[in-house]
Nucleic acid binder design. Structure first.
Lengths: 182, 182
DNA sequence: TTATTTTATCTTGAATTCAAGATAATTTAT
DNA sequence: ATAAATTATCTTGAATTCAAGATAAAATAA
């Protein structure tokens, strides 16, 4: 196989510092590089629906929550792993676009409820099939067994990171919001 | 195994839209989630050396290039997958911190050369062993075979993304810089 | 009841990034 | 030799994000 970008980095390090423990660096470097290269491929589809990636994420989170397609800001920023301040900005923008509305909660006046509008629902349901197709297309280069192994490996890795996060939530962004300690 | 965050998302989608093709979404969702949870774990170590993640990345790229630890801004922003403008900001900041200097190139006056200072070299060489140890520790939860499978799977995925990028560089950020078409 | 603590959201200011375009040097074409 | 195209870097302005803290409501304690 042709050396990839990470192979070249590892080779450089070995030249400079022979014997350096580069195995973990290589694997996690590939993880990082995959996610950097992958994001614009998603954006290419979202932009066809005049959506950004984060707009899609918020709408999709509300959509899959099921009727009445309504969540609190806290539920949203927790699910999306961003801070509360980020979510405030996002909701303001999405509301101005007419895709969500923010309603007061009679039971608990501290809470707002964020609800998908009909326009928001229509938008996400139009974009979703193409988003799904896009992701499926990306993995077309892998056969069934390779895909299974990839998912299995990432499942194991995610379990590690979720465990670390459960043990020390302060190490994770977003969820470390002052008042949101899981 | 206990369901992870992605299992829950997939389950929600299946409830709302039975039969939706969620396999690729699940795998790539795990990829994304891993990289989001992973970054703050790196930052925790970098911060002990008064470094941010991107500062480490620039210094490390220069360090592993070997003596005289000098690269052009274009080589740096290409390697780090950011735009030229981003690199200008980074270099300005790193220069003010005394970790790099920018020199003119007599051969080609368009080029500058970015060179690691002694202070920059010392800083990266002090942080590197702990960064390596940190990454190794993250993967301690996997046995030798699991680590091999993870790396193999990510290598295959990265090959896909590098191929897509090679075919249509416009889909990748940073490298789509006007004058930098690989 | 009143005070304290906790919970939920929002505001502010700084940092980082990108896209687009400006500037200037070099190379290529005519 | 001159013009045009290319290359390399930097500048600007807008978007996004976070950390810290402000605000206000609800729950708990005294």
């Amino acid at each position: 196989m042709k050396p990839d970008a990470v192979d070249k980095i590892v080779h450089q390090w070995q030249q400079e510092i022979p014997g350096l423990a580069t195995d973990a660096m290589a694997t996690l470097g590939r993880l990082k590089r995959c996610s950097v290269l992958y994001q614009p491929l998603l954006d290419a589809v979202f932009s066809r629906f005049e959506l950004t990636s984060w707009e899609f994420d918020v709408l999709a989170t509300l959509r899959r929550a099921g009727a009445p397609y309504s969540l609190t800001p806290t539920a949203l920023f927790s699910a999306l792993m961003v801070t509360s301040g980020t979510m405030t900005h996002r909701l303001k923008s999405l509301e101005s676009r007419g895709w969500i509305i923010r309603e007061s909660n009679a039971q608990d006046a501290r809470q707002k409820r964020v609800r998908l509008t009909e326009a928001g629902f229509a938008r996400i349901d139009k974009a979703l099939p193409e988003h799904i197709a896009n992701m499926e297309a990306m993995l077309q280069g892998l056969n069934r067994q390779q895909r299974a192994k990839l998912d299995e490996a990432l499942t194991g890795l995610l379990a590690i990171f979720e465990q670390i996060h459960a043990d020390s939530p302060g190490l994770s962004r977003g969820l470390s919001d002052k008042t949101h300690r899981l």
